[in-house]
């Protein structure tokens, strides 16, 4: 059986908000290491990779690997019924037809349980190589969100170029062009999460669909910082770390020149 108790139930809402615009269903894999999800959007352009480590739960028990296929739209509806301060427990049997969500209010004066039907999902798993990125950019997540939103007002595709001087975001649309350069500022007085840091072994440049990048920024409430990892001619990774818990990562295939 699987049973996991999460003290910060609001975290589940944030995680679901970060994926609900991209996928409609997914297999949550329960394993002794934690709860994970890998799923692609319907166009197979982007991939979501979530890990919530077992150590991040107040109580975690998982005897064997259990794939828990869930409709994300329905899951969002159920988790919305939890208060943002509620403690959430997720429970299911080894071969579940249903998953139970138990919500306990912080003061323990209200207890609710919701049971949701599981579904069988034949999803394709991709092997994402554990690679060293040629360019890694760490920046405030709110700044990245703002930047993607501003770029999307002008064009559909953003070209991201990373050099040691900084990161240049460029786009072109019917009304004109936009360029925003973010420079690394590690020596200032900023707190760590307000800094922009760039680590590169060689300059990298590629084009990406802004519609997807904008969807990824729905994960902004999960982390004060976001990390972009790029390798020439490979998908970009956009990572939001969840403190003491794991991560939400998005991979996005680049635009290919004909």
């Amino acid at each position: 059986m699987f049973e996991a108790r999460l003290l910060q139930g609001g975290l589940l809402k944030k995680v679901l908000d970060s994926i609900k615009d991209i996928i409609t269903e997914g297999n949550f894999d329960c394993s002794p290491n934690g709860l994970s999800l890998q799923a692609m959007d319907s166009s197979h352009v982007s991939l979501i990779d979530i890990l919530l480590e077992s150590e991040g739960f107040e109580h975690y028990r998982c005897d064997r690997n259990i794939p828990m296929g869930l409709n994300i739209t329905n899951l969002v509806k159920m988790i919305k019924c939890a208060g943002s301060e509620d403690i959430v427990t997720i429970k299911c049997e080894d071969k579940p037809d249903n998953v139970t969500f138990l919500f306990e209010s912080k003061d323990n004066d209200k207890i609710s349980d919701f049971e949701m039907k599981t579904m069988t999902i034949d999803d394709e798993h991709l092997l994402v190589p554990d690679q060293t990125y040629t360019a890694v950019v760490k920046m405030p997540s709110a700044e990245f969100q703002r930047l993607c939103r501003d770029m999307a007002a002008i064009g559909d595709t953003v070209n991201i170029s990373v050099t040691k001087e900084g990161v240049r975001f460029s786009t072109t649309g019917d009304m004109g062009t936009a360029n925003i350069t973010v420079r690394p500022n590690p020596s200032g007085d900023q707190k760590e999460e307000e800094r922009t840091e760039v680590q590169i072994t060689e300059p990298v440049s590629a084009g990406f669909a802004l519609r997807y990048l904008n969807s990824f920024t729905k994960a902004t409430p999960l982390s004060p910082t976001v990390t972009l990892g790029m390798v020439p001619n490979l998908p970009i990774v956009v990572e939001y770390k969840i403190a003491d818990m794991g991560h939400v990562r998005y991979y996005l295939a680049p635009k290919i020149e004909d």
């Binding site: 692609m40 352009v45 394709e124 798993h125 991709l126 092997l127 669909a209 635009k255 290919i256």
Partner: peptide, 14 residues
């Protein structure tokens, strides 16, 4: 003109 790549052309299936 650029085309949108698909993930399968970059990552292998498990």
């Amino acid at each position: 003109k650029s085309q949108q790549g698909r993930l399968e052309s970059f990552f292998g299936a498990v």
